[in-house]
Design a protein around this nucleic acid. Structure first.
Lengths: 349, 349
DNA sequence: TCTCCTTGTCTAATCGATTAGACACGGTAG
DNA sequence: CTACCGTGTCTAATCGATTAGACAAGGAGA
């Protein structure tokens, strides 16, 4: 209708511009935008709304953040988004945040403590309103920075022991037990484990669950085979190879992550053996790609979306009520039966 | 040394606090922090630095952003981070941005135009200094918003035709040609294509390259088999199934994405056939998981990291010099030979 | 009729950092 | 001796939004 400025819209139109055009003050405009703390007459509101529309005004989030100390941004620290599991988790967190009306600034720490700390500080400096930390092993300095942060934080996937922050974890021990028991139920005498270099972090629980299941089943110590290596597909490949050359080759293997399992699958095929006929395999994480491996991978499903929603909800609670942040939530995992354990394959035991 | 405030450090210590403690003005403190536009006496600088250290002062990025209009944040729009290719790309962009000293705020548009637009606006409202848009198909409203944005934007992976913004693309046509030619060179008479629902977006070029290679090789029209479906593993699975039931089953298949190829691999195995003996397969994208499929997947490697660095460099150029933003950069792709095409497998042709 | 409350609006302080303008001082060139 | 310049510092305006305080007008209750 009226002449239009520059090109399209949001270029430097400020509250004051709107106020001028609507013949009122900036305060009133603000009240309209926020359904402000003060009432506004219907006629005035109408004028303001129209001015906003005509000018294509959009509030500046930076200015708003400075004034209100609410940036609408959540900092998310991830170990490695190239890893499918963390990618799913990251995406779920981002989606949950979006639904809660917040933006997400992400940092890939890449298992580097310095980076982790750098990101925590950068997030805090950016006045992130909350932090979501996904990590397998936390840098002490990052933990400290988080503990004394003026905003709530929530650990996902793994929490440092004794943290005052909230945590959302998967039932790793239960999952390890479930996977192992399932293989045992298929008739295997024992089950080997494909684990990481050590049992720190979330996988520790998975290995513990494996051990527990084996103990319950009366498997003697000398039949509890462990093969360890890096948490990558290549690591899984190498570890499985070692297992295949083992004096008495296991007939069933529990890989503590799907990445490891995918590498293992490859190693078995390479050796000319068959899954599950020669070696049954169960993974852990429930990544999407597990459905399309050859054979498809039986795995322990971790409810990434639910964890993400839980994490955001936990931050929400911290913002709303005063509820002190602490509290660890452990979400149940589930067995996703596919071919690699012997369930779907007709010719397997 | 001196008494320490609250808990650890960065809680609400402002420039003014530092100035007070260093017995100087906020201006001088600012000059020290920024190696400011004005010189500072060595002794004063020393006092300021010490005060900063003692108080654990960290500048507030929000306030700084308001004043300087430089937020240090780049908005990154991705289609779907659960997809390994986009996940790699996203991670590479994030890493390149971090190295350039900037934070990244991400949005997963999930192929939803409304979301895409919402994110572009949210990024702009947050005073993001630059935008990186990765998409396969752009919503017109998002394109408009981008075109009239006061900050530089760069399209990655795919650009809307005739955009004034910079773009960093892969050589999709060349890659399609390369993949198809490679299969042809293995002795196949023709090569079928596994494509998306239509040829819009980056895959269009890949299909074009396939068609070109077939034409060059003198393959008649009625031997140019296309199977189309959704861009997912499940879609690849379904499309390949259809191909297997085709009257004259192809002996070689070019899948325009690795996701499709992974699904296809699964379908072939399910049908009791073998790759590459019965059907040779080449994918496109070079995702990490392609190395560990069964058999490992020959694919066209897209230089995700290089694209990311290029994109950030393009933004950098736009910030530094006045260089008008336009310009499309097309990066070369490469053939990654593995087993699925018949290269690595001894018993294949 | 007078007070008090509610509604509606405006003015101005504020968030925390940056930076132009003003000023002081010592040194140098004319 | 005066004019001028460079160095070093401080005061205060500014970025754009939020919101408490002040105030006006109208209605209700005493």
């Amino acid at each position: 209708m009226l002449e239009c400025r520059k090109s399209g819209g949001t270029l430097g139109v400020t509250l004051a511009d709107v106020a001028r055009r609507a013949q009122t003050s900036t305060a009133v405009v603000s009240y309209v935008i926020n359904n402000g703390p003060r009432p506004v007459a219907a006629s005035t509101r109408e004028r303001v709304l129209q001015a906003i529309a005509e000018l294509g005004y959009r509030p500046d989030r930076v200015a708003r953040a400075l004034r209100t100390k609410r940036s609408g941004v959540i900092g998310v620290l991830l170990p490695d988004t190239a890893n499918p599991f963390f990618a799913s988790l990251g995406q779920a967190i981002e989606a949950a945040a979006f639904d809660a009306g917040r933006l997400v600034v992400v940092g890939n720490a890449g298992f580097d403590p310095d980076r982790e700390e750098a990101y925590v500080h950068a997030f805090l400096d950016s006045r992130a309103e909350g932090l979501v930390v996904v990590s397998t092993r936390h840098s002490p300095r990052a933990i400290d920075a988080l503990a004394s942060a003026p905003v709530p934080a929530v650990y996902v996937h793994h929490a440092p022991p004794g943290t005052p922050s909230a945590a959302v974890l998967a039932d790793n021990d239960g999952g390890g037990h479930l996977a192992t028991t399932h293989l045992l139920d298929h008739g295997h005498e024992s089950v080997a484990v494909l684990a990481g270099p050590d049992d720190a972090g979330p996988v520790g629980g998975r290995v513990a669950g494996w051990r527990r299941a084996l103990a319950e089943h009366g498997v003697p110590d000398d039949r509890r085979i462990e093969s360890r290596g890096a948490f990558t597909r290549a690591g899984g490949h190498a570890s499985m190879r070692r297992l295949l050359e083992h004096e008495d080759r296991p007939t069933a293997v529990f890989a503590v992550t799907d990445e490891l399992a995918v590498g293992a699958l490859h190693a078995v095929a390479e050796a000319g053996l068959r899954v599950p006929a020669d070696i049954a395999l169960v993974g852990f994480d429930g990544v999407p790609e597990a459905e399309f491996t050859n054979p498809s991978l039986t795995t322990i499903g971790v409810p990434a979306e639910r964890m993400a929603r839980s994490a955001i909800a936990s931050l929400d609670r911290a913002w709303q009520g005063q509820e002190r942040p602490g509290g660890t939530e452990i979400l149940p995992v589930s067995l996703i039966r596919r071919a690699s354990c012997g369930c779907a394959s007709p010719m397997s035991r």
